[in-house]
Amino acid sequence: MKKYQFLVVGLGVFGTNVAKILSQKGAEVLVIDNDEKKIQEISPFVTQAIVADATDEKTLRSIGAGDIDIAIVAIGENMEASILTTLLLRELGVKQILVKNINPLHAKIAAKVGADRIVYPEVEVAHKVAESFLSPNIFEVIKLSQEYNVSEVGVLKKFWGKNLKELDIRAKYGVNVIAIKRKAPFVTDSGESDFKEEVNIAPGPEEELNEGDRIIVIGKENDIEKLK
């Protein structure tokens, strides 16, 4: 498989974490920031870390930005710098540019000057936090589209002791169960108790649901809500 080359511009919390995660997963990661201290700190974790001004075209050319496959513009507050960097990277021929949103106007302009994708980390986290209070029985949500989600849901009491065939969740709720997460308690020889989490992917119709189980379901958001 081709090894993608990434460029991360801006070492705030988001940029730093994206760079580190990409590196941990074996990608080639070049990072730039104008803060020398931040560059020194991330240097051991990435392929190359350079103190540079990303709004300077010559600098971007000199570091070979044109050969980059995917650039992540993670400049935190300076809207002008973010937009200019996006524009320059597009002109230099970066294949894909992802830009961290600063505000709605910035997002619009960034898209106009060449961003392929705008990401809204704070908004996404805000949604998750709000949902966790409103639907405490829904533990994780991945949005597939405007309408469809994959969600991890605690099993309703009325489901306990029944198998998937009896429950017929697809017909009754309009969602598909794609996995069951279950805690398997144990006690060690020395008497210490604990549990390990087991995941049963594509469970069969005879699989019984019990207290404490969580089901991973795919379906319309409104239908999944009925399971909470």
């Binding site: 029985n137 533990f139 605690g154 805690k183 308690p185 108790s193 604990d194 549990f195 207290e211 404490g212 969580r214």
Partner: peptide, 12 residues
């Protein structure tokens, strides 16, 4: 208390 914690965690 630890074991009670485990039970509550297992019960979601």
């Amino acid at each position: 208390y630890y074991n009670l914690g485990l039970v509550y965690e297992s019960r979601n």
